[in-house]
Design a protein around this nucleic acid. Structure first.
Lengths: 219, 219
DNA sequence: TCTAAGTTGAAGCATTCCTTCCGTTTAGGA
DNA sequence: TCCTAAACGGAAGGAATGCTTCAACTTAGA
């Protein structure tokens, strides 16, 4: 599920590497729908692993968070590239990208907002540059789609990020049979609303940029 | 902020009634953005009240939750009526209603989903009937707007509820200066996407009804 | 087969959260 | 103004939950 590059867990035994990835995958889901403070035990159980294993691999919660964030950011960049390459129009690429994010529950914003996550990114130069590349990619797609005339002009890459984040974070208490269906429906409604062919009710404030998202007060 | 009918805190001293309302108002906000398990102390502090006062008024968390849910449902019904009466078109009424919900952070769905909340509603006959009236009102608005031809036909009252719930639940880590701005932007984008003049990309599944939302598996 | 690496989960410790209770404050009537 | 029942606050004890370690056990892989 995560990138198979040289990043993370390199000299590990085969079973250990498998567990490591299960942990990251489970944590990615639990972090987004139960918050960053889910009990370590829950994380472990959900990854079919003992707590001890979790601690062996990740000395503390921050280490785990760092790994999860790295996984997400790399996936995001990959998905973004795929979308850009395989779709002729920027609008199509944007739609494809957002649909993929929704399917895979990739919180875009997760990598941009919140002090803990921002810290995880900024402390790791390699992750930092991947993140930057990703941000540029999205900004390019957004601008291209607007030049094309297909994406409404009063939104920015920041808006796109927020939309995805919102979709990925599910509303709690949702009946099981709707869990899979709802986010997709909402996304399509949003896409229709973002398209240039929609009525385009004026929005308050200017387009949100990624810089806007980064402006969380440090203290 | 809550209804001034005879509901709740009747024979209380003036200061006590004031505190009671502060508690409910604070709890309404905290419940939605920190979850139903926020520490009692946080609830008290956020209402400018001691824990003791909180317990004096609400013997346990469920009692408080009940009061909060009652407050929300009544507000929802009132806001819905206002919208219906003051707007000539159903579409206008729907927009107005949703904008009001957004401004006042009224989670529509809050009253429909989740076992704890549903229990709070079903245990109180008066609240139950208010809730039913509210649901009918929304369903009527939705159907009217569709008959009008202004609301896309492939959505139901359930979709509307979900949209509002999503908006009301803010994404964590959002910079302060965007807290107020973002939900409004998203709402307008959604409204454009819900309108009939938008491209109307086909949605997966049929329109979600309120019954769909109620179908949470009991176990 | 052997061993270094990996795994597990119970146990002890730390932290958070709940709830009560009593000394103090105050609204509001006489 | 005075009085009292009502209300308030918040420290403190106890319960619960979560964190982290570690010693006994298992397994991958040479």
């Amino acid at each position: 599920m995560s990138g198979h590059s040289s990043r993370g867990g390199d000299g590990l035994r085969a079973d250990a590497r498998r567990n490591r990835e299960q942990i990251i995958a489970a944590a990615r889901d639990l972090f987004v729908d139960k918050g960053l403070n889910v009990p370590m035990e829950d994380l472990a159980r959900s990854a079919n692993v003992g707590v001890g294993t979790l601690y062996r691999r990740f000395p503390d919660r921050e280490a785990l968070l760092h790994a999860v964030v790295a996984d997400i950011v790399h996936s995001l960049l990959r998905v973004g590239h795929e979308a850009r390459e395989q779709e002729p129009e920027a609008w199509g690429a944007l739609c494809r990208f957002m649909r993929k994010c929704n399917e895979q529950r990739l919180g875009v914003l997760l990598s941009l907002m919140g002090p803990r996550i921002r810290e995880a990114v900024s402390k790791d130069p390699e992750l930092m540059s991947t993140s930057t590349a990703y941000i540029h990619l999205i900004e390019d797609m957004v601008e291209a789609a607007q030049r094309e005339g297909t994406l409404r002009a009063d939104v920015g890459a920041g808006d796109i990020g927020i939309v995805i984040s919102l979709l990925v974070m599910r509303v709690p208490g949702m009946p099981d049979h709707l869990r899979e269906l709802v986010p997709g429906r909402l996304l399509e409604i949003m896409l229709d609303g973002l398209s240039t062919r929609s009525p385009n009710t004026p929005l308050a404030g200017g387009p949100l940029t990624t810089a806007d998202l980064g402006a969380a007060r440090p203290k």
